[in-house]
Amino acid sequence: MTVDDLWFLADEATQRAEQAYHRLRERHSGYIQRTHTRRVTRERFRTLARRVKETGAPYGAQTVVHRDGDEILLVRHEGVDMWVLPGGELRDGETYREAAERELAEEAGVSADFRGLAMANRIDIACDDYATWGVLPVFAAAATELDLSVCDPDGEISAAEWFPVSNLPADTRDRDDILAWYDRAGP
């Protein structure tokens, strides 16, 4: 891929992200909007821009799942060595919510009552002089099944646990986003 092709890819990805974001806005309300910036290598930029061009989302979709009012489900992601919200990439033909439901079942073995969109985060992606962005939809859900079992086919998730919102692990990715959602909309 030449340098000019990378610029065109970034432009196409941006257009797809705008379409995806506007569709989310049309279908949901009351969600939190946050922006995160990721500076990445050229190869990673290419990968993420392709995902955004295809789906509007660089990382897929996630779910913030709660139980008993103040406990949140997190999964241990070995690739980033952090506790994260369950979620992942979309498969062909999946909606964001379908991907979030599938990933929740795979990564934690939990089913949940989905209650709408908790967050519509904007992920700005930059590399050298190239930039694009994508959405990261995070759905809110109440657990209907509390027993946890990790069956992650990718082998990235090593554990799933419930944590009180007041005592999230220090190495929780997007901790501030989770706390902002809980403080604003919570269960």
Rank of each mutant, 00 (worst) to 15 (best):
R42A: 08
A185D: 11
A141F: 07
G87M: 12
E71N: 02
V165P: 00
E161V: 03
E12F: 02
F8A: 13
L85N: 15
M82H: 15
P153E: 01
A141W: 05
L136Q: 13
L24N: 04
V75I: 13
T172S: 07
P153A: 02
F114V: 14
E106F: 12
R16V: 08
R23V: 10
V165Q: 10
P137M: 01
F8S: 14
A108E: 14
T63S: 15
D68C: 12
Q33I: 12
D68M: 14
R51V: 08
T95D: 07
G79A: 07
D81Q: 13
L85H: 14
P153F: 06
A180S: 04
A180R: 03
G88Q: 12
Y59S: 08
A126R: 11
D177R: 03
D5K: 05
V3A: 15
A126M: 07
A10F: 07
T41R: 02
P153V: 01
E78F: 06
E26R: 02
G116R: 01
T172N: 11
F45Q: 03
R42V: 07
Q62E: 11
T95K: 01
L104G: 04
A131E: 10
M1V: 05
F139E: 09
D68P: 11
A131N: 12
L146C: 08
G87W: 12
R76S: 14
L90C: 13
A140Q: 05
